[in-house]
């Protein structure tokens, strides 16, 4: 059982041009083995929220709990994957994957067993000795996912991990991640601004509105798994997409008509 919850988190950045309220009293709870997607317009505070959950950013107020225990900073119970390629360029693929276990001074054979298994699953067994520069963008992100999983985290926090990929690679990566998730059954918080992606992947979609970043609505995705590409054409998918789009766009127009923002 591993859940992650955010209680009443607010984040105010003090900048030269004044205070920016990036997040305003956000509370959410992602249950065990649940795939949660967080969507919202650019700048609405998705990354900030995820970094707070990861312990990389300390919130101005509020707390984050993993399995009911409050977190203070980053920890191996939460693995992270970012949009930018964050592989260590001087380490080979296998060494990247073994980075976490190595910090724990895990025995070599055991590390090897973990990385062998993960690289196999990621379809990267032949690239164990390659340097990151020799990989395509999609492969890099798979290594990054493997590296996060190597620590056996309770929760996986992903910030637009496929944002830099082209449409084809991206679709493949989404199906791939679904497979991984079905196998590993981790609790996942997945940030994206691609609504299709959020519906295709998530059990739940959390929508956020910007300035200040607030949680707008929590939408359960009632499309049964396993999901296939056909899902994109179904009426239910279209309905969900329109609903989520409205939640986000309605807010963008708030400046024009205030009344539209009423829930």
């Amino acid at each position: 059982m591993s859940s992650i919850s955010v209680s009443d988190v607010s984040m105010v950045f003090k900048t030269r041009r004044g205070r920016v309220q990036a997040i305003d009293r956000v509370s959410l709870e992602i249950p065990d083995a649940h795939f949660a997607c967080i969507v919202g317009a650019s700048g609405c505070g998705k990354s900030t929220l995820l970094n707070i959950m990861g312990g990389l950013v300390r919130p101005t107020s509020g707390t984050v709990q993993v399995d009911g225990r409050q977190i203070h900073g980053p920890g191996t119970d939460r693995g992270m994957v970012f949009q930018s390629y964050t592989l260590f360029p001087w380490l080979r693929v296998r060494e990247n994957v073994e980075f976490g276990p190595r910090l724990k001074s895990m025995a070599k054979e055991e590390r090897r067993r973990i990385s062998d298994r993960l690289l196999q699953e990621m379809g990267l067994a032949d690239f164990a000795r390659a340097y990151p520069k020799e990989l395509s963008g999609g492969m890099k992100q798979r290594v990054a996912i493997a590296r996060a999983l190597a620590n056996d985290p309770k929760v996986l926090l992903m910030d637009e991990p496929f944002g830099a990929l082209d449409a084809l690679t991206r679709a493949a990566a989404q199906r791939f991640l679904t497979g991984i998730w079905e196998q590993h059954r981790r609790t996942i918080a997945f940030v994206t601004h691609d609504i299709d992606e959020a519906i295709f992947l998530g059990d739940t979609v959390y929508t956020m509105t910007p300035r200040p970043g607030r949680l707008r609505e929590v939408i359960p995705v009632d499309i049964p798994r396993p999901r296939t590409l056909d899902e994109f054409g179904t009426p239910r998918f279209g309905e969900l997409k329109r609903h989520i789009l409205e939640l986000i766009i309605e807010h963008e127009n708030r400046g024009v008509s205030q009344t539209a923002a009423a829930p």
Binding site: P74, G75, T76, F82, F99, A148, N151
Partner: peptide, 12 residues
């Protein structure tokens, strides 16, 4: 890059 440092922290 800060991301490189941050990812190392999240890896423990």
């Amino acid at each position: 890059p800060k991301e490189l440092v941050n990812i190392a922290y999240t890896l423990g």
